Amino acid sequence: MRMHWDAFLATVQERGEYPTQEEAERAARTVLALLGAHLVGDVRSELAARLPEGLALVLLNPLQAFEPLSPERVIRATSAWIEGACERTATWDSSAVLSVVSDLAGEDLMSRILLQLPPGYDLLFGCPKPVE
């Protein structure tokens, strides 16, 4: 079931403690573009089907990553794409967006998403893996 645009951005705005919905949208577009560059196949299309249409297009039409980026490199890329951001605020932005994505995805899809990403993304999504 696709989440409505306003509901998605309101949740990102609340979790990110952004003063405006525009700031939440900027973070969502940046983070989803970077995420989309790392996901392929059914996983990406299943996640896109749950996102608001405008954000689904961001996820589905990214520039492809030449290599998988570690969470640290994604944070650096996020801080470069968001005006005035630093790595600390980019981590905050990423977690605000990705925790909403995690809620939308559900446990099964989230586990398949994390399989496509380098280790460490579980913390950004707010679903750390138990230590074995």
Rank of each mutant, 00 (worst) to 15 (best):
Q64N: 06
D6H: 11
A10W: 00
S95N: 14
L59M: 06
A24T: 08
L39M: 07
P130W: 05
E14K: 14
E53T: 14
G41V: 00
L115Y: 00
A24F: 01
V74I: 13
L35T: 04
L51P: 05
C86K: 10
P128E: 07
P71E: 13
A33L: 04
P52A: 14
C127H: 07
P128Q: 11
V31C: 03
Q64M: 03
P118R: 14
D103I: 04
R29Y: 03
V43Q: 09
R2G: 05
E53I: 12
M1F: 13
A10N: 10
A24R: 02
D103L: 10
L104M: 14
G16R: 03
G36S: 10
E53C: 11
E83K: 15
H4M: 08
Y18D: 12
F8Q: 06
E23V: 10
H38F: 08
R29E: 03
R50I: 08
F125Q: 05
D108M: 11
G120M: 08
N61G: 11
G41E: 06
P19V: 10
A33C: 07
V43R: 09
F125H: 10
A28I: 05
L63E: 15
G120C: 13
A85N: 14
A7V: 11
L51V: 09
R112L: 15
L32E: 03
A56W: 03
L39E: 01
H38L: 08
G54Y: 01
R26L: 11
T89Y: 00
F8H: 09
A48Q: 04
F125R: 07
E46W: 07
Q64V: 01
D42A: 10
V12I: 14
T11F: 00
E87P: 06
F66G: 14
P62C: 09
L98S: 09
P71W: 01
R26F: 08
K129V: 12
